[in-house]
Amino acid sequence: MIGITSYGAYIPRYRIKVEEIARVWGDDPEHIKKGLLIYEKSVPDLDEDTATIAVEAARSAIYRRSIDPKEIGAIYVGSESHPYAVKPTATIVAEAIRATPDLTAADFEFACKAGTAAIQTCMGEVAMGAIKYGMAIGADISQSAPGDALEYTAAAGGAAYIIGKKNLITEIEDTFSFTTDTPDFWRREGESYPMHGGRFTGEPAYFKHIISATKGIMKKVGTKPSDYDYVVFHQPNGKFPLRVAKTLGFSEEQIGLGLVVPMMGNTYSGSSLIGLAAILDQAKPGSMILMTSFGSGAGSDAFSMTVTDGIEEVRDKAPTIAELLKNPRYLDYALYAKHKGKIAV
């Protein structure tokens, strides 16, 4: 059986509150908070980018399981904010965890689902026996144009997963993807901020793909919503995952543990993966978890997995999501703009 051997996450310690962004753009913060179910979001430090976040998450995953990094045969970093347009983030991670040079590495991009696509790729290579362990990372310093609705949610963070056959903390029963060409959100080459189709990002994009992929995986493995203890969906805001859960027949108890977006925002490629990490931080052996990501453009990857006894060995070995969210430093909009490079000089 293939599954998750270890995981690690990283969230920068800076935050900005919805009230502060709303103050600048003249919006009603209560309306935003109620409408998006978001209260504050994480912001990178001046010297943090997707590569540094990916490295911190990767090191945490290595540390949690005391894995010899030389046994990692593949590193894939999914992001839509790679520091370089050309030049991989994955090699930076590989060098920083001392996995070089006998491995393969690449950067993935599929909007917010590049991290789960990386997990699938690692599963394939582990399954064919080409590698012992593969590392899949989803990380972003999410971009959003000043004043865009996205600015309330676009956050910074990431998570890393080590995929293998041994020392598992979850067994992955199967994965199922649903993909169409649906341009609901995009960023053109050389542009600083993404554009999106407004309400078009909802029904024909997020909901259609997540619902289809989730139904697909349950059909494939022969499960129903009530079989799962926990479910996590991509979290562009707090509202969408709750609504898609309800539509699919999942309860608020099932989705609650992994719903991390209200206090940290949408970390794009890191979003569903940080949600999964929050579940693994607490899930008991034998628990079943369903995860479905969503990437604009558009596609969803769904995974059905069961937590093993191994979880107890690693649970306290690296910082939990709850610990990473502790002691935030709040920024005003001006400092936030400086941190995000939104001030042109």
Binding site: D49, T52, R59
Partner: peptide, 9 residues
């Protein structure tokens, strides 16, 4: 007491 972190220099 300090610990190492990975950052842009």
């Amino acid at each position: 007491k300090v610990r190492p972190v990975f950052r842009k220099l």
